[in-house]
Design a protein around this nucleic acid. Structure first.
Length: 390
DNA sequence: CTAGGGTTAG
C-alpha cells in the first residue's frame, strides 16, 4: 500500500491490530496503536475495543480496564461490543462478580442487554461454578423477550456436562433438536464429547457422521474430538491414521491432540509410549502440558509404578487439583495411606481443592488399617481447614 | 476492522 502511495487509514490499522490481537501479540498491538497516533490518525471505538481485548487475552485486566475508562471518559461512544468485551474479559480473568456488576449497571443505565451479552455472562457464570446465578440469568433472558439461540443452548448444555449432569444435558440436546435449531461444529463437538465421556461411543460415532453429512468442515477441535473417540474405543491405530490426514489437510496438532493421545496410550497400557509422546510434546514447547502430565501420572500409578509416579510428581513444577486428587486416590489404592494423608495435608495447607471421594478414601483407609486415631485427626483437620476458605 | 458457545486428565 505504501509503495502504491496509498495511505493506510483507521480501518487499515484496526485490521492489523485485530490480527495481532487474535494472535495474542500485545506489543505489536501497542506499536500499531502508537504508529497510528503518530500518523495523526484518530483511533476509533474499534481500535480501543481490540486493544482492550488484547489486554484481557494477555492476562492484564487492569490495563484493559484503563482502556475502558479512557473510552468512557473520552468523546468516543462505547458500542455494545465494548461492553461485551469487558464482560467476557472480566469473566475470563476471574472477575465474574465484576462482570455481573457491570451487566447490572448497564441495565440500570438503559442499555438493554442483547442475547450475546446474556450468552457471554451465562457462560462466565457456568465456568466459575455459579450455576444458580447462571440459571437465574437464563430465566431472565427468557422473561426479557429474547429467544435463546444455538449459542445459548450449547453454552447451557456444556455447563450441564461439566457439572456431570449428563441426563439434563442430553435433555437440552433433545430440546434443541425438537425446536429445529441448526447444529454447527460447536454443538456437535459438545454433545459428541459428552457421549464419549459417558462411554456411549456408538451414538457419538453416529453424530460424528451426521456432522459430516451436514456438510460441516472439520476443524482442529472436531478432529481432536474424533481422535478422542477413537482412543476411548481403544482404536489407537485409527487415531494415528487420522493424524496423517490432519497434517495433509494443513492443520497443526495442538496440545489437546497430544494430550488425548497420551491419555489414550496410558489407557491402552502403553506407558512407555505415553512417556515418549510426553517428552516429544515437551520438546516441541507446547504452552501447557500439565494435563498430559496428569494423565501420565495416573497411568503410571494404574500400572503399579507408584514410586516412579511419586518421583515424577516431585519433579513437576506445575500441579493442580487434578494432580493431587488423582495421586491421593492412587496412593490409597496402593494402600499407602500415610503417604496419601501427608499429601492431603499439604493440600489443606496450600488451599488446593481435592475431590471429596479422595479425602474419604484416605480416612477410610487409615481406619481400616488400624490407624483410627490418625483418621480422626485428619478428619478434624479437614473440618478446620474449611474455616480458612470462606 | 472488534466480542461470545465446542476438544484433554482425577
Amino acid at each position: 500500500m505504501k509503495e502504491a502511495g496509498i495511505n493506510p487509514d483507521v480501518v487499515t490499522y484496526n485490521s492489523l491490530i485485530a490480527g495481532a490481537s487474535k494472535h495474542c501479540l500485545l506489543s505489536r498491538c501497542l506499536d500499531l496503536f502508537e504508529e497510528m497516533l503518530q500518523k495523526g490518525l484518530r483511533p476509533d471505538v474499534w481500535s480501543y475495543n481490540s486493544l482492550m481485548h488484547c489486554f484481557f487475552k494477555s492476562g492484564q485486566p487492569d490495563e484493559a480496564n484503563r482502556v475502558f475508562r479512557d473510552i468512557i471518559l473520552s468523546n468516543i461512544d462505547p458500542s455494545t461490543t465494548t461492553f461485551n468485551i469487558m464482560i467476557n474479559g472480566l469473566c475470563k480473568n476471574g472477575y465474574t462478580e465484576n462482570a455481573l456488576m457491570l451487566f447490572r449497571n448497564l441495565q440500570r443505565h438503559r442499555f438493554t442487554p442483547q442475547i450475546d451479552t446474556y450468552n457471554i455472562l451465562i457462560n462466565g457464570l457456568c465456568k466459575a461454578g455459579r450455576l444458580g446465578a447462571a440459571r437465574r440469568l437464563l430465566k431472565e433472558l427468557g422473561q426479557s423477550g429474547h429467544i435463546p439461540n444455538a449459542i445459548t443452548y450449547t453454552t447451557v448444555m456444556k455447563c450441564c456436562f461439566r457439572s456431570r449432569r449428563f441426563k439434563q444435558g442430553l435433555e437440552i440436546f433433545t430440546e434443541m433438536k425438537e425446536k429445529g435449531y441448526t447444529f454447527d461444529g460447536f454443538a456437535y463437538c459438545t454433545i459428541i464429547g459428552a457421549l464419549v465421556k459417558m462411554g456411549r461411543t456408538e451414538e457419538a460415532n453416529e453424530l460424528m457422521e451426521n456432522m459430516v453429512t451436514d456438510g460441516i468442515e472439520l476443524d482442529m477441535v472436531s478432529y481432536n474430538t474424533l481422535i478422542n473417540m477413537y482412543c476411548k474405543k481403544g482404536n489407537l491405530e485409527a487415531a494415528y491414521n487420522l493424524l496423517d490426514e490432519i497434517e495433509k489437510g494443513g492443520f497443526e496438532c495442538d496440545e489437546y491432540t497430544h494430550t488425548i493421545l497420551i491419555d489414550g496410550l496410558c489407557k491402552a497400557s502403553n506407558i512407555e509410549g505415553a512417556e515418549r509422546h510426553l517428552r516429544y510434546m515437551t520438546m516441541m514447547g507446547f504452552d501447557s502440558n500439565l494435563v498430559a502430565f496428569n494423565c501420565w501420572l495416573d497411568g503410571l500409578c494404574k500400572a503399579g509404578e507408584v514410586d516412579y509416579a511419586m518421583k515424577v510428581f516431585k519433579s513437576m513444577e506445575l500441579k493442580d487439583s487434578f494432580t493431587y486428587s488423582s495421586l491421593v486416590h492412587n496412593l490409597c489404592k496402593a494402600r499407602r495411606f500415610h503417604s496419601a494423608a501427608k499429601l492431603l495435608l499439604s493440600c489443606l495447607r496450600s488451599g488446593v481443592k481435592i475431590l471429596r471421594s479422595a479425602q474419604k478414601a484416605v480416612i477410610l483407609g487409615l481406619n481400616s488399617s488400624g490407624y483410627s486415631r490418625e483418621a480422626s485427626r485428619l478428619r478434624s483437620k479437614i473440618q478446620l481447614a474449611k474455616l480458612l476458605h470462606f
